[in-house]
């Protein structure tokens, strides 16, 4: 016979276990049924607006100092309005690129991390903006994720 653990802290408003008991596989009613909740869904946590959320892979290690590594999974929500300090995906030189939005002397710039690249002035309604990155998911060496990515070219 299987036992189902009983939830310990029952809120006062919860129905008494005797209400509408359901039979478990053993034929016994499971007292935990009344407290069952949906399991945590990481996707729903990270993707608040499915219509405007896209995933990308980060290529290159230039932003490593900011905790953005080659191969990280980027979660981009196009519905977010960009603000200074945000990390953006922008179309630069025909390429989807990751840069940080910065404010300097009350003007906005797209700031690269790589040496030798110029900062680019940025307008509020800039055509080059693709979306704001809201999460970067980084795999640690213990996961299989790392090996699936080609080694960093830089």
């Amino acid at each position: 016979m299987t036992m189902t653990p009983i939830a310990l802290a029952a809120p006062a408003s919860a129905p008494a276990p005797s209400d509408a008991l359901q039979r478990g596989a053993s034929g016994f009613p499971s007292p935990a049924d009344d407290y069952r909740e949906a399991p945590l869904n990481l996707h729903h946590h990270l993707v608040r607006r499915p219509a405007s959320t896209f995933f990308m892979r980060l290529e290159g290690d230039d932003h490593r100092h900011a905790g953005l590594h080659h191969g990280d999974l980027l979660v981009i929500d196009r519905a977010i309005s960009p603000r200074p300090g945000h990390w953006l995906v922008a179309a630069i030189d025909g390429e989807l690129s990751v840069l940080r939005l910065e404010r300097r002397q009350s003007r906005l710039y797209l700031a690269p991390s790589r040496h030798g690249l110029a900062t680019l002035p940025f307008e509020a309604s800039d055509d080059r903006l693709w979306g704001v990155i809201c999460y970067a998911i980084h795999a640690l060496p213990a996961t299989d994720e790392e090996s699936a990515m080609p080694p960093c070219s830089r």
């Binding site: 896209f54 230039d62 980027l74 995906v89 390429e95 690129s97 990751v98």
Partner: peptide, 8 residues
């Protein structure tokens, strides 16, 4: 097949 975004 996710799109790649290059760090700059």
């Amino acid at each position: 097949e996710l799109p790649r975004a290059r760090a700059r």
